[in-house]
Lab assay of single mutants.
Amino acid sequence: MASQGTKRSYEQMETDGERQNATEIRASVGKMIGGIGRFYIQMCTELKLSDYEGRLIQNSLTIERMVLSAFDERRNKYLEEHPSAGKDPKKTGGPIYRRVNGKWMRELILYDKEEIRRIWRQANNGDDATAGLTHMMIWHSNLNDATYQRTRALVRTGMDPRMCSLMQGSTLPRRSGAAGAAVKGVGTMVMELVRMIKRGINDRNFWRGENGRKTRIAYERMCNILKGKFQTAAQKAMMDQVRESRNPGNAEFEDLTFLARSALILRGSVAHKSCLPACVYGPAVASGYDFEREGYSLVGIDPFRLLQNSQVYSLIRPNENPAHKSQLVWMACHSAAFEDLRVLSFIKGTKVLPRGKLSTRGVQIASNENMETMESSTLELRSRYWAIRTRSGGNTNQQRASAGQISIQPTFSVQRNLPFDRTTIMAAFNGNTEGRTSDMRTEIIRMMESARPEDVSFQGRGVFELSDEKAASPIVPSFDMSNEGSYFFGDNAEEYDN
């Protein structure tokens, strides 16, 4: 783990906690998980779902989305002020799938948001429990990260689609708070800032007046979040320049895209947490497990152990491969979309394939898809080993990566060399080191050039047997250095459309 220093740990961010010791953190995270579980059980009762239907990941996603929508204050306010045809701002819903006479049927349900809020609060001892809501947002974000390569979004903001390893959390809503900021990748933060800068260039009043003052505060806050992700002084200094700019424009845009590229080699610290679907927490609570009393951590053995003992089902389209669908969801559960496939294969105990080789589309089923041909199958979400999630980018030494994705962002704290394609990355730096950030740029390029592919990161860190909950005997895996390590390699994943 990167030293926490003055930073709060993510469990504290996750639970809005002030400084807590490890036991208190485990208890408050457990409380959050228990609340999600209780809410899910109650919703299944309301909807009269069978046990099997309640364990269907598509039903879980609909129920999670309903509660997130019920608590989305800004959108609710907007919907009330701008009524649109056929949208009731006070209601929320989605597809629920039921097994009827041996076939899967889709039923569109509609609930009062007020009623959903009441059920959620009741499951969370009367609190709004925003930490639990954020947790579900991060699960949705991790699922998107594993399912889609955001080529269009990258290109629109002047970045290269091969930089997708920097895009963790790119679909997280803005209201996801400190826990959300911690899991956002460098590219995601750059993209958010670039969008602001572009608006400022096109709209003279963007930075002016009372609204402009708020915009400015948001801009500086985002700059500080991004600065905190960088691990070298030169990158941090460049972020200070971007933040202090009187009138952010093209120079800042250039600096930010430069920094994003540099992060492929001088990786930023991005938190990883295993956020599971509500249909995993519900049955665990129903079986009598007391998360608050037992304590829970999002970055240790607990999620692995929970998945070892969970039964989750998914709808499967006619030509999809259930094992591939399982891999997709497994990666999402562990926030591992940008991790090295060699490491993932070792931990999972079966070969993890790149996205383009998977015969599976996303987990969600569109409303126009034919239910007649839908089957369902068990998702295999178990693992051979477990490993500690990392909050750091690993040290800054790398190795060759593949054509589709030119770097990785480690999820697990496991000893290995970190793949990246130096030639491709360095070719993108057209040696432009003039301007006010020239000395920093020169320094950053120097550090990137001296990074050695064969150097090892996370020295001495290994994986653990599932029986080793105290992480007492690390097993340090050895990897084939020459092997392909990137998930979005030469990829044809669908595009994420909101």
Rank of each mutant, 00 (worst) to 15 (best):
H324C: 12
G86M: 02
Y296L: 01
R152W: 06
S359D: 13
W104D: 04
S245Y: 01
Q311L: 01
A153V: 13
M222H: 05
P477L: 08
G86I: 01
Q12T: 10
Q42Y: 09
M196V: 11
P419G: 00
K357F: 15
S402L: 15
S60L: 05
N205H: 10
P322L: 06
R55I: 08
P474T: 12
D455G: 04
D145H: 11
V299I: 12
R461H: 04
S450D: 14
N224G: 00
D127Q: 13
R422C: 06
I388M: 15
I301K: 13
T62H: 01
E220S: 05
G35R: 11
T396H: 15
R174D: 01
D127R: 08
Q231H: 15
G94K: 05
S165T: 07
P419C: 13
P248F: 09
A427F: 03
L344S: 12
L307G: 06
R461G: 11
A218D: 11
V299L: 12
R65L: 04
P95Y: 01
P419V: 12
G93R: 09
S335A: 15
D421C: 06
G212E: 11
S486D: 05
N368K: 10
R8S: 00
S407N: 08
H324N: 12
L108R: 09
A85V: 07
M448N: 12
I63N: 05
E18T: 11
D203R: 00
N21V: 00
G490K: 08
L259C: 07
D491F: 08
R99P: 06
A401P: 12
Q122R: 14
D455N: 10
S287Q: 13
D439A: 01
R174C: 02
S450H: 09
L56H: 03
V190S: 11
L306E: 05
K198Y: 12
L418A: 05
A286I: 14
E11G: 08
N430A: 13
A284E: 00
R261K: 11
S457Y: 13
N483I: 11
L418G: 08
C164R: 05
A260H: 01
L193F: 11
T257M: 05
D127V: 14
G180V: 06
M440R: 06
L133M: 14
R199Y: 05
M440V: 15
R174F: 03
P95R: 08
T147R: 02
R389K: 15
A123S: 13
M196H: 07
L276V: 12
N76D: 12
A179P: 08
S310D: 01
I475Q: 10
C333H: 01
I347M: 10
Q122A: 00
I119A: 04
F346Q: 08
F338I: 07
I41K: 00
A2R: 00
N370I: 10
T15I: 06
V29K: 07
G431I: 05
L79V: 08
G295F: 11
T424V: 15
S326H: 04
E434Q: 03
Q459N: 05
E294H: 15
R243W: 06
A85W: 05
E107K: 10
S314N: 09
T411V: 15
N430S: 13
R416C: 02
R99D: 07
A428F: 05
S473T: 05
K87N: 10
Y219K: 06
N247M: 03
R317M: 05
N202K: 10
V29H: 02
E14C: 04
N59Y: 09
R221C: 06
E244L: 09
R261A: 04
S359F: 09
Q58N: 15
E80R: 09
D340G: 09
D112P: 02
L264S: 03
S473N: 13
T373F: 08
S274D: 14
E24S: 01
R267V: 04
Q405S: 03
K229S: 06
W104Y: 10
G200P: 02
R213T: 03
R38A: 07
G37Y: 06
N417Q: 13
N368F: 02
M189Q: 04
Y281D: 03
F479C: 10
R216D: 08
T350C: 13
